[in-house]
Design a protein around this nucleic acid. Structure first.
Length: 580
DNA sequence: AATCTCGCACGATCAGAAGCTTAA
DNA sequence: TTAAGCTTCTGATCGTGCGAGATT
C-alpha cells in the first residue's frame, strides 16, 4: 500500500488509522484507501490523540491579547495562557501520531458520530461547478484527517481533469447523493428550527457570511495573492455559527488544504491543470501529502478570540480578515498569523470548530467535539501575480484598500454606490462604512438593516444585547450587493412574522445602526457609468461594454433583480453548511 | 517564457493630539 | 474655571494592485 510505504513509523498508525474500506460509493476503485466520511470512520483514535488539540494550542496568535474581549465570556488572561500554551506544533503533532497515543484515546465504535444517513449536516456540494465536491469532515477523526474529501479519489480527479467548464473549471461529478443544487441558483440547505427534520441538535451550523461575494470570485476562479510578507485574503473568510452550546468553550480556526493534486497554469484565458502539484513529501499519496502539509506545515490560522464560549462565537460574525497568505516557508514563526501556500496550486479553506474544556484541555472522552466545515466557493488558486483580469477587477472593485485603482471613483461611486458593499478587511465596524453609504437613502438603509438584523436575530437569538465581548470584530454582515446575488442563488421563503420581528429590532439595535456596512441606492445599481468604471482596463470610449458579453455586467443586473426580492428572500442570505 | 520580487503610489485605518461643548 | 466628553484633524502605518526588473 502506497501509504504504508510513505508513512514513517511514528506516523504509521494502526490500521484503524487507515480505513481500508472501499465501500465509499465514489471511491471508484481508486487506490485511495483513506476516507473521511463519518460513516466510514470506524475509529477516532487520531481525534483522541488529537493533533489538532496540540496544534491549536500553540496557535493563538499575537493579537490574542489585543482582541480578546473583556467580558464574562472571556476566560481571561490566566485561562488564556492555559488554553494556548506555546507548543512546538510540529513535534507535538508528530508525537501525537504515535500509535500508543492513538490507542489511548481509542473509542468504541458505538460512540462514533452519526452515519451518513443521519448526517444531514454533510456539506452539499455544487454540481457543475469549478471543482470537486468537498463534503465536510471532521478532522477529529483519523480517517477523516487522512481523506478529507471523497472526490480526491482518482475517479473524481479524472473527472476534474477531463470535464472542464467553458471557464476552465472542472465539472467534477459529485459523489454525494445529496446534491446542493445544480447551479449557483441551487437551493441551499436551510434549517430554520431545531424541530425541522434534518437538524441534529447540538451540531453547529455555519453560514458563510459573504458568500455572494465569494461566488462572484468563484465564478472566475478565485485567485489569492501570496507574498513573502504575507497578503490578506480577499474576500476574507467570515462565518456565522449557530447551534453551539452557549456555555461550552470552543476553539475556532481555519486551515487551508490542497484542493486538488494539480499544478495550475493560466493559459488561453482560463486555468488549466498542468502537471502534479509540488509536494514536500515525495512518494506519498496526495491525501497524505495534503494532510501532512496541513497539519505539519503552516496552514492553520486560529481565530484570535479562541478559545471562547459558544455564546461568544454565536454572537456575531467570526471573521478571519487578518489571515495572511504567504509563500515564505520561513514564515512559520509568525505567531500563526501566516498560512504558507505554494503558488499556482489550488486550495480549499476549511473552518474547524473544536470544543474544549473550560480549562482549555480537550475532552477526549466524547465524540463529535471537532466539527469541520468546507465551502467550495472559497476555493482559490494561490498566485504571486493576478492572472485573470476579471479577478483583478473584482478585487479592485470590492476591496477598499484597492480604491486607488478604481477609475473616477469620486464621480462614479459617491451617492450611487451600488457595489461598494464589501467589508473592510479589518474588523473594525468603522471600516464597514463605505463612502457611498454616507449618502445612502434611508430606505435602503432600513432595508439593509432589516436584512442584516433579520439574519442576526434569526441565527443569533442573543445577539441583540448590543456590543459584547469581541465587539472588535462585530462586523455587520450586510453586504447587500453581493448578498442580493446570493439571494438569487439561495431562494428561501421568509418565515412568517420574521419581518415584524426583525424590524423593531433594527431600530433599537444601536450597534448596527451605528455601523451600516452596506447602504446603497438601489436605483442607481445599474448605471452604465458604474459598469464602465468597473472595466478599468477597457477604455469606455474604445470598447463599449456589452451587457451580453460582460459577466460582470450580468452580475450587476442579477443583483438588481435580486434586490427587488431580497426582502422576501433574506433567508437565503447565507451559504450554509453543517457537518460534524 | 513563465514566474517571482521589490519598490512605488494611492487609499484606508488607527491612534493620539487639538479643539470645542457642556455641566458641575 | 475646570474637568469630562465628544468631534475633528493629522501623521504613521498598513494593505492594495501595478509594473519593472530579476530569477528560474
Amino acid at each position: 500500500m502506497q501509504l504504508e510505504h510513505c508513512l514513517s513509523p511514528s506516523i504509521m498508525l494502526s490500521k484503524k488509522f487507515l480505513n481500508v474500506s472501499s465501500s465509499y460509493p465514489h471511491s471508484g476503485g481508486s487506490e485511495l484507501v483513506l476516507h473521511d466520511h463519518p460513516i466510514i470512520s470506524t475509529t477516532d483514535n487520531l481525534e483522541r490523540s488529537s493533533p489538532l488539540k496540540k496544534i491549536t494550542r500553540g496557535m493563538t496568535n499575537q493579537s490574542d491579547t489585543d482582541n480578546f474581549p473583556d467580558s464574562k465570556d472571556s476566560p481571561g488572561d490566566v485561562q488564556r495562557s492555559k488554553l494556548s500554551p506555546v507548543l512546538d506544533g510540529v513535534s507535538e503533532l508528530r508525537h501525537s501520531f504515535d500509535g500508543s497515543a492513538a490507542d489511548r484515546y481509542l473509542l468504541s465504535q458505538s460512540s462514533q458520530p452519526q452515519s451518513a444517513a443521519t448526517a444531514p449536516s454533510a456539506m452539499f456540494p455544487y454540481p457543475s461547478q469549478h471543482g470537486p465536491a468537498h463534503p465536510a469532515f471532521s478532522i477529529g477523526s483519523p480517517s477523516r484527517y487522512m481523506a478529507h474529501h471523497p472526490v480526491i479519489t482518482n475517479g473524481a480527479y479524472n473527472s476534474l481533469l477531463s470535464n472542464s467548464s467553458p471557464q476552465g473549471y472542472p465539472a467534477a461529478g459529485y459523489p454525494y447523493p445529496q446534491q446542493y443544487g445544480h447551479s449557483y441558483q441551487g437551493a441551499p440547505f436551510y434549517q430554520f428550527s431545531s424541530t425541522q427534520p434534518g437538524l441534529v441538535p447540538g451540531k453547529a451550523q455555519v453560514y458563510l457570511c459573504n458568500r455572494p461575494l465569494w461566488l462572484k470570485f468563484h465564478r472566475h476562479q478565485t485567485e489569492m495573492i501570496i507574498t513573502k510578507q504575507g497578503r490578506r485574503m480577499f474576500p476574507f473568510l467570515s462565518f456565522n455559527i449557530s447551534g453551539l452550546d452557549p456555555t461550552a468553550h470552543y476553539n475556532i480556526f481555519v486551515d487551508v488544504i490542497l484542493a486538488d493534486p494539480n499544478h495550475w497554469r493560466f493559459q488561453g484565458g482560463k486555468w488549466v491543470p498542468c502537471g502534479k502539484a509540488d509536494t514536500n513529501v515525495q512518494g506519498k499519496s496526495f491525501q497524505l501529502t495534503r494532510f501532512l502539509d496541513t497539519y505539519l506545515g503552516n496552514r492553520v490560522y486560529m481565530h484570535p478570540d479562541s478559545p471562547n464560549t459558544g455564546a461568544h462565537w454565536m454572537r456575531q460574525e467570526i471573521s478571519f480578515g487578518k489571515l495572511k497568505l504567504t509563500n515564505n516557508k520561513g514564515a512559520s514563526n509568525n505567531n500563526g498569523q501566516m498560512v504558507v501556500l505554494q503558488s499556482l496550486h489550488k486550495y480549499q479553506p476549511r473552518l474547524h470548530v473544536v470544543e474544549v474544556n473550560e480549562d482549555g484541555t480537550e475532552d477526549t472522552s466524547q465524540p463529535g467535539r471537532v466539527q469541520t466545515f468546507t465551502f467550495p466557493e472559497t476555493q482559490f488558486i494561490a498566485v504571486t501575480a493576478y492572472q485573470n483580469t476579471d479577478i483583478t477587477q473584482l478585487k479592485i472593485d470590492h476591496n477598499p484598500f484597492a480604491k486607488g485603482f478604481r477609475d473616477n471613483y469620486d464621480t462614479i461611486y459617491t451617492g450611487c454606490d451600488m457595489d461598494r458593499l464589501t467589508p473592510s478587511p479589518n474588523d473594525s465596524p468603522r471600516s464597514q462604512i463605505v463612502p457611498g453609504a454616507r449618502y445612502a437613502m434611508a430606505g435602503s438603509f432600513l432595508q439593509d438593516q432589516f436584512v442584516s438584523n433579520y439574519a442576526k436575530a434569526r441565527f443569533h437569538p442573543g445577539a441583540g444585547a448590543g456590543p459584547g465581548p469581541g465587539t472588535d470584530r462585530s462586523v455587520p454582515h450586510t453586504y447587500l450587493g453581493e448578498e442580493a446575488e446570493g439571494l438569487a442563488a439561495e431562494r428561501s421563503p421568509l418565515p412568517p412574522g420574521a419581518a415584524e420581528d426583525a424590524k423593531p429590532k433594527d431600530l433599537s439595535d444601536s450597534s448596527w445602526i451605528e455601523t451600516p456596512s452596506s447602504i446603497k441606492s438601489i436605483d442607481s445599481s445599474d448605471s452604465g457609468i458604474y459598469e464602465q468604471a468597473k472595466r478599468r482596463r477597457i477604455s469606455p470610449a474604445d470598447t463599449p461594454v456589452s451587457e451580453s458579453s460582460s459577466p460582470l455586467k450580468s452580475e450587476v443586473l442579477a443583483q438588481r433583480d435580486c434586490e427587488k426580492t431580497c426582502a422576501k428572500d433574506i433567508g437565503g442570505y447565507y451559504g450554509f453548511y453543517s457537518h460534524s
